[in-house]
Design a protein around this nucleic acid. Structure first.
Ligand code: SF4
Ligand code: SF4
Lengths: 162, 162
DNA sequence: TTATATATGGATATGTTATATCCGTATTAT
DNA sequence: ATAATACGGATATAACATATCCATATATAA
């Protein structure tokens, strides 16, 4: 099992958008350029973020994307679920009902202990992701990003925002 | 993202093996029959369980599989990792190093806050799975499995074990 | 008004992983 | 010896992730 690669992209992109000056927006093309990502595919993910209301999209020249709410109000879980959906990772195929020991469907009133165990673990995963906000990510980044990269990023910002 | 379907199969199969009388073994073919699963593919998963030392395999007539240690000493995490591997679900592709703001590799000393967040959540998931043993699963099953299914399973056991 | 820049959604192509089968070999009980 | 079983490698198929392309809608600015 592998998590959608777009999650990494999305968190990075939102981190960049968080530094946008008031009233500005960044188009998909420029975000793709910043991380050297495939433009059209990234655009798909940005559309997911837009549908999930994490970013606001603005069409037309000068348009693009910007955060739809402040970084402290966006959790990593929000981002992950925007990209990867909310379908549980463990999907029971009800094999207990099959084979020689199966009994009619109405005998199975609720999900079994196996499914509940798997789902409880997923909840622990989600809870942990919900505990971290985009603001937290930015904070860590501010402390740990190499100085040179910060400068280069600022340069880039200056060039793409007019 | 979807978890390997074999996880569900494996937990069920180990649950059945837990009820084997001392000294007996169940071959892949019969396990597949019990759950109406594709025999050869299930065999692959059983081989994974064997490599992970969760079951002991016995070749030849009368052979098959049985638990390699008592049910309380097998966790759901053991089973999940035997089937799905131990590779982290979140795999960083280091996009921070790419594009116009990237700096030389030696500037990045440790995984960033994003990766650490994702991995911490995975650890919470694993911890939760490690908290549940196969014995716990059996216990829940004993309480919740429909009576009719228990009887049919016992019938089946009687027929396949000589 | 026109041209341009952007997002959106659908269609499609490609690559990768999961699912499933098959076969030859090794091992062991009878 | 024969039959039953596990094992590993090879292969086929299906599902999904990744990536591209295009037609359309919308907004900006000249
Ligand atoms: S016993 Fe649980 S995991 Fe197994 S088929 Fe039923 S609901 Fe699914
Ligand atoms: S910043 Fe973190 S998630 Fe992003 S590429 Fe680097 S290590 Fe990976």
């Amino acid at each position: 099992m592998k998590l959608n690669e777009g999650i990494e992209w999305a968190i990075h992109c939102l981190s960049v958008l968080a530094y946008l000056p008031e009233g500005k927006a960044l188009p998909a093309k420029k975000l793709a350029g910043f991380f050297d990502l495939p433009e059209h595919y990234l655009a798909k993910h940005l559309q997911s973020l837009s549908q999930a209301k994490l970013v606001k999209s603005i069409k037309g020249p000068g348009g693009g994307y910007r955060l739809s709410r402040p970084a402290p109000d966006i959790t990593v879980l929000d981002i992950v679920q925007a990209i990867d959906g909310k379908t549980p990772h463990f999907q029971c195929t009800e094999i207990r009902r099959r084979g020689p020991s199966g009994v009619p469907d109405e005998c199975y009133q609720k999900p079994c202990g196996i499914a509940r165990t798997m789902w409880r673990a997923e909840k622990a995963w989600r809870d942990e992701l919900a505990r971290v906000s985009l603001q937290d990510i930015l904070q860590i980044g501010a402390e740990e990003t190499p100085q040179l990269q910060i400068e280069k990023s600022l340069d880039w910002f200056g060039q793409v925002i007019q």
